[in-house]
Amino acid sequence: MKILLIMISASFQIYWYGLDGLRGPVLSGTNFYMKRESLYNYSMHKGFRYHSLVEDYFTGFKLHCQGWKSVYLTPTRPQFLGTSTTNLNDVLIQTSRWSCGFVEVGISKFCPIIYGSLRMSILQSMGYTELAFLPFYCFPLWCFATVPQLCLLNGIPMYPNVSNSFSNIFIFIFASVLLKQIYEVLASGGSVRTWRNEQRIWMIKSVTSCLYGTLDAFMEKLGLTKASFLLTNKVEDDEQVKRYQMGLFDFRTSTMLLSPLVTIIVLNMAAFACGVYRMMFTGEWEKMVLQVVLSFYILIMSYVVIEGMLMRNDRGRIPPSVTLLSVIISGVFLSLGSVILNMY
C-alpha cells in the first residue's frame, strides 16, 4: 500500500482530520514524513514540483492522483520544532504567495474538481478544490465590508426590519457561522481568544493578501505578469520580538498592502457613526440596526487596526500617511457610491 505520513500544526486539526478518511489530508508545508519511494516513482519528475508556488499542495495532489495515501498523525508529544512569521508584513507576503499558487492550480488544467475527480474520489477532489479556491473569500468579504456600509451612509436599508420575521433568517445565519467557528476552535483545544485572533487575521488577510494573490494569479494566466517565489523572512529583531510578546501588531509593511485594510476600517467607522445617529435621532433603528451591528462587529474584530491608527506612537504603528491616504480613498469611494446609488 502506498502511504505517506503527514503531521501538521493544530490550526489544521479540523480540516485535516476530516480529510483523513478520504485517503488522507494534503501535503502542507513542513512537519511531515514522506517515503522516498513516493518522490522517486513520481512519473518522469523526481522530487517536489517546484514550478508551483504551492509546491507542497501540488506535489501532494499529484501523489494522491497516482494512488498514494497520506495519514493524519498528531501525537501528544510534538514531533517537530520550528518558527513561523511574527509580523504582519511577512504574513501578508506569505499569504499572497499561497493565494496566487492555489488559484493558479485551480484555474489550470490540473483543476482538482476536473483533473482530480477522474483519479480520486469526488469527495477528496472537492477537498482539494476548496483549498484551491479558498482565496476567493476575498470577494464576498469585500462586499460585506463595503456595500452595507455604503447603503447605511445613504440611508438605504439592506435587510428586513428587525420586527419582520424574515430578519431572523439573517440573524440565524450570522450567529450559526460564528458559533460553528467557535466550536471548531474549542474542539481542537483552542479558546475563545484563539477564535478571535484567528477571525481577526483571517479578515485582514482576506481583504489584502488574498485579493492581491488572486488577482496576480489571473494576471499571470493572461500573461500580464510572471509569478515569483518570495521566501518568507523568519529572522526576528529584538524590537519585533518585544512587540510580538506584548501582543502588538507590527504594521511596518507596504502601503499597497496596508491601505485597503485601513480604508475598510475608516469606511466602517463612518458608517457606524452615521448608523448610530440615524437610529437615535431619526427613528430608523428597525431599518438600520442590522447594518449597524455588522459595522460594529467589523470594528470590534479590527480593534488592533484602530489602535495602530490612532493610539500608538511606536515604530510599529500605522503611518499617518497611510491613514490619510485611506481617508481620501474612502471619501472618493463614498462619493462615487452615492452617485451610483442615487441613480437608482
Results as ranks from 00 to 15, higher is better:
I93Y: 12
L63E: 09
R77P: 12
G101C: 00
E104P: 03
R119M: 04
L131P: 04
I122L: 15
F110E: 05
L81H: 14
L88S: 01
W68E: 05
K69T: 09
P78W: 11
Y115I: 08
L134A: 15
C65V: 06
L81M: 09
W142S: 07
Q124K: 13
T83N: 11
V71M: 14
G67C: 02
K62F: 08
T85S: 03
F80K: 05
V91K: 13
R97V: 03
V71E: 10
G127R: 05
I113E: 09
F102D: 06
T85Y: 01
V105Q: 03
T76R: 13
G127W: 01
F110Y: 10
Y115C: 08
M120L: 10
F136Y: 13
L118R: 10
G67M: 01
T95W: 10
C65T: 13
L141S: 12
L141A: 15
G127K: 05
S96G: 11
L92D: 04
T74K: 15
L134E: 14
G106C: 01
W98L: 03
M120W: 05
I122A: 15
W98I: 03
E130W: 01
I93A: 08
T83E: 12
M120G: 09
G116N: 07
C138A: 04
I93G: 07
R119A: 02
I93H: 08
S96Q: 14
S125F: 01
M120N: 12
T85I: 06
S96A: 14
G127T: 04
G67K: 00
L88I: 00
G106S: 06
W142A: 08
G67R: 01
S117H: 02
F136R: 03
F110W: 06
S121M: 08
L63Q: 04
